[in-house]
Amino acid sequence: MDLELERRLIEDIRGGSQESFRTLVNPLIAKAYRSALAILGSSPLAEEAVQNALIESYSMIMSGKEIRHFQGWFSRVIAHRALDTARKEKNYKYSLDIQQLDIRDHADSPLESMLKKEQSERLIESVMALELEQRAVVVMYYFQELKIEEIAELLGLKEGTVKSRLYYARLKLSRKLHSADLMPQTREMMI
């Protein structure tokens, strides 16, 4: 969506148009939900985070807040609400349904399709096993495609801290995925 259309929609929303708000946020909701789900690992909590982000967005628009690039701003709001929810629900159990993350697959054969889906599921499970601080920066960097500077600003961290968390998260993911690949071979050798 171009910036001029965003500005017109925001003005229409301030004028009372609920349809303009739907037009503005509908293209962003699926990605926002997937990002919140990847951070939180729970559908109900992800839905809560998205709902809170939508309420906050509407309130900010109606209060006259200047929002220059709504899509980027909304991504940051989603990340904040997901992290707030995670902090509030520290002891929740992960109940991630990998099917909800909409893993797109364009494989040529059913076997290739099955293998790619299995690899994607292992990757997502590995990301979900990371500590919240690392999982959050991984999701923001790879799922929401935020820049290091944006993540640092969003989380109130130094850029070096964000880079460090990404580095250690990648190491953990690499080790976990590498060890998962070796496990079947090790079992075969023991037989």
Rank of each mutant, 00 (worst) to 15 (best):
L146W: 04
L28N: 09
S179I: 02
L123S: 05
L9K: 02
L83N: 05
A82I: 07
S43Q: 15
F21A: 10
Q134D: 02
D108K: 13
R34Y: 00
E153Q: 12
E145L: 11
R76S: 01
R34W: 00
M189S: 08
A136G: 00
R122L: 02
D105K: 00
L37Y: 15
D102Q: 13
R135H: 06
Y141I: 09
L45M: 01
I151G: 01
R68N: 04
M183G: 12
G64K: 15
L111K: 02
I61V: 15
A49I: 15
A82F: 03
D12A: 10
R122A: 04
E47K: 11
H106Q: 05
V77F: 10
F143H: 12
E159S: 06
G16C: 01
G64E: 14
S164I: 05
L5S: 02
G64C: 14
E19N: 11
Q99L: 04
R165M: 04
I191A: 08
D12W: 05
D84Q: 09
V25Y: 06
Y142S: 05
S75R: 07
K31L: 13
A107G: 12
P27W: 09
Q51A: 15
L177M: 12
I39M: 15
F143P: 01
F70N: 02
L155N: 03
S75C: 03
H178W: 02
E133A: 15
L83Q: 07
L96Y: 08
A169E: 04
E47T: 13
R14L: 09
L154G: 00
L96F: 06
E118G: 07
V139H: 07
L115N: 08
Y142K: 13
S164Y: 12
E11K: 15
R122S: 04
E125N: 06
L171D: 05
P184I: 08
L3P: 00
I151R: 01
L177Q: 10
K163Y: 01
M62Q: 12
M190R: 13
R34C: 05
A86M: 08
L45Q: 00
E11Y: 08
K88F: 03
V162K: 01
L45T: 00
R122D: 10
I148A: 00
I151L: 03
M190Y: 06
K116S: 14
N26T: 14
I29T: 12
K117F: 08
S113K: 03
L111G: 03
N91I: 10
R34G: 07
K116D: 13
D102S: 14
L28I: 09
S63A: 15
I29A: 08
R81D: 00
E149V: 07
I13Q: 03
A36T: 13
G72N: 10
A180F: 04
A152V: 11
A136R: 06
D102N: 15
K93W: 07
E6H: 13
V162Y: 04
G156Y: 08
K163A: 00
S75V: 06
G160F: 09
W73N: 03
R175A: 12
S57M: 11
L177E: 11
M140R: 05
Q100P: 02
H106M: 05
G160W: 10
Y92E: 00
Y167S: 01
E149M: 06
S35T: 11
E47I: 10
A38G: 07
M60N: 05
M60R: 07
G72S: 15
D12H: 09
K88H: 02
H80M: 06
E6M: 08
E112M: 12
P184A: 14
E89S: 12
V25E: 09
